[in-house]
C-alpha cells in the first residue's frame, strides 16, 4: 500500500492505494468521479482520457502513483458554475455525442488537440489526432464538427 497525493479538478486529494492501482481506478472508485470511463484494456479507445499537468493522458495506462503530486483534470472539472466549457457546448450544439460513453474522453482529447493546433485546426488534423479515441455511435462526422466548433469558440 502507498499514499498518493494530487490535485484533482483543483481540489487536493489523498488516498491509500495498492501499488498496482491505476489512475482511472483512483478516479472512479476512490474519488467516485465516474465520468472517466474504461472502454478497453489496451490503451486504444480513449474513453479514459484525462489531463495530467495539462497534457492528455490515458488514465487506464498510468499508475496512480505516477500522478503523485500532479494536477489532474477530469471531465467533471470543465464546467464552471453550471456553465458548460465551450468545447462541451460545441459537442451539444453539433450532436457530437450519442450514447455518451466515449464523450468524456473525446472532449478531453479535443481540448488537447486545440491546445496544440490552435483554434483554426482543420478537419484532416482533427481526424488524425482523434486516432486514439474510438466512437461506435457517431461515425465521427459530428465529433469532428464539434471539435472544430469548440476550437473556434475557445479562440474567441
Amino acid at each position: 500500500m502507498l499514499t498518493v497525493k494530487m490535485s484533482v479538478n483543483g481540489k487536493p486529494v489523498s488516498a491509500e492505494l495498492e501499488d498496482r492501482t491505476l489512475l482511472v481506478q483512483l478516479l472512479r472508485e476512490n474519488l467516485r468521479l465516474t465520468g472517466t470511463h474504461i472502454g478497453c484494456d489496451t490503451s486504444q479507445c480513449g474513453a479514459c482520457v484525462v489531463h495530467v499537468n495539462g497534457v492528455s493522458v490515458k488514465s487506464c495506462t498510468l499508475l496512480a502513483v505516477q500522478a503523485d503530486g500532479a494536477e489532474v483534470t477530469t471531465i467533471e472539472g470543465l464546467a464552471k458554475n453550471g456553465v458548460l466549457h465551450p468545447m462541451q457546448q460545441a459537442f451539444m450544439d453539433n450532436h457530437g455525442l450519442q450514447c455518451g460513453f466515449c464523450t468524456p474522453g473525446m472532449v478531453m482529447s479535443a481540448l488537447d488537440i486545440v491546445k496544440r493546433n490552435g483554434s483554426a485546426v482543420d478537419e484532416a488534423t482533427v481526424r488524425k489526432e482523434l486516432e486514439g479515441n474510438i466512437c461506435r455511435c457517431t461515425g465521427y462526422h459530428n465529433i469532428v464538427k464539434s471539435v472544430q466548433a469548440g476550437a473556434k469558440s475557445m479562440g474567441g
Binding site: 464546467a79 451539444m92 450544439d93 455525442l97 464523450t103
Partner: peptide, 21 residues
Amino acid sequence: VRRKEDNRFLIGKGNYTDDIT
C-alpha cells in the same frame, strides 16, 4: 432540437452500470 440527454453525459454525470456502487 438539442438533446435533453447531453448535459449529463457532457459533465460526467451519466449513470452507466459500472458507475453504480
